[in-house]
Design a protein around this nucleic acid. Structure first.
Lengths: 230, 230
DNA sequence: CAAGTTATTTGTGCCAGCGCAAAGAAACAA
DNA sequence: TTGTTTCTTTGCGCTGGCACAAATAACTTG
């Protein structure tokens, strides 16, 4: 199952690409399909390809020498990942990309995009916009981790997920993530996440189940995220 | 005191610029000189200018709604800062830039660079390289903050500073930073930094004074940063 | 449906690191 | 020199959140 020009045009970085450009990109790429749990690439691998997720869900994570890992971001369809390598030659991926469910992605040769960018300003330009948003997000998350307490960070993680993937439901929002996921996203442990969620459930803010969270009172969660509640 | 083409060429982002480009940049910019403690811009201001530091030292910091702040990075001469606004129109600075000592910087109109980039691929390209390095650094720091303990983070902060600004001395490295600075850089409090440094001094790793740290045993600090010591 | 696997909850103990406060030391001013 | 400011140290109490372990609970598989 391939990807059409029209699909590719939905990708933020390619929104200004010409049809001819898109065709070239498609010609210089292949589709990779992975099962849940498999990796598109590992931290430290040479960054020879960049990816556009076609379907599924992919987690970007970084591991430190002693094996602990943190979630950097979750990738949804039509988003690009692994693009850092297209900018510097001979770069290595600074993070790993793991499929959270069966996923397929378009793999574009880094060197090819690199070359295209040298003659197509709009492309670098759109990629830069993407990068600035990453920088800002990482800066905010860094600040949050440094200055905010766990409850607040978990609330923020939930809200971020809501924006990215939660389907709005009349009486709340449904999310499908494990305590472990949440812990990695908010820089804490699954034990703490479990306790906090149990607490919120008692307060009637959410209803929690196995690998899913239903936010019944989004406003209350926002208040916690903002640090308005103690 | 102005800045010459030759100086500007030292700036990483402008390394591939033509003389004509550099002249244009100089013509579309002004020099701003600030006293210690003053701000080039504040978080939330419209990002109308980007800066190239000519001399002095500038701290980029982010503040949360309740006023706590974290250090994002320190800028040294010939480095660019506040560039995010050149990419998105109508952007606001996501952080504040404060002069750590009397400093002067070349202020370039964001809109002007924006325009230049539309016709000069090399420019966006070099700026992208800079951005990727920021992203990677923020990702690492985020991971460190999430998974490493205070001692380790302080050691890393010291090493980062060593690379950026420390003059190598035969028997060690001299750094001029306050406990407060170190605390903001490693996401902790000045009390903790003070205690940790006192401890290291007892172990003979460093000698510490008011606003300065002399690393006598760099290798030992590296070991702590790597997490090899308990 | 029984057994196995994976996710979650919860109790308990513990300590790293925070926050406050107060005192000391260095730098600066006049 | 003496006061003032700024930076640093240190004692002390406190607690948020971690670590481990064990019990549930939910899902999967044959």
């Amino acid at each position: 199952m391939g990807i059409s020009r029209k699909d590719l045009k939905q990708v933020i970085v390619f929104q200004n690409a010409t049809d001819d450009d898109l065709n070239q990109i498609i010609q210089n790429s292949i589709t990779r399909s992975l099962e849940e749990g498999e990796f598109f690439f590992l931290q430290g691998d040479p960054a020879n390809y960049l990816y556009v997720l076609v379907n599924g869900q992919v987690k970007l994570l970084q591991t430190n020498p002693s094996g602990q890992q943190v979630n950097l971001r979750t990738i949804y369809p039509r988003q690009m990942f692994g693009a850092l390598g297209a900018v510097r030659e001979q770069a290595d991926y600074p993070a790993s990309a793991q499929a959270l469910e069966n996923s397929s992605a378009l793999a574009i040769k880094s060197a090819f995009l690199h070359e295209m960018m040298e003659t197509r300003p709009y492309l670098s330009f759109d990629l830069m916009k993407l990068m600035t948003s990453y920088i800002q997000e990482m800066q905010s998350r860094y600040r949050e981790l440094a200055t905010e307490r766990v409850e607040q960070r978990i609330a923020r993680a939930l809200l971020r997920l809501t924006v990215q993937s939660g389907q709005k439901v009349d009486e709340g929002i449904d999310l499908a993530f494990s305590r472990q996921d949440l812990a990695e996203m908010s820089g804490t442990t699954l034990y703490t996440v479990s306790r906090v969620l149990a607490d919120w459930e008692r307060q009637g803010l959410i209803r929690a189940g196995r690998e899913q969270i239903h936010i019944t009172n989004p406003h209350g969660v926002v208040r916690i995220a903002e640090g308005l509640e103690k």
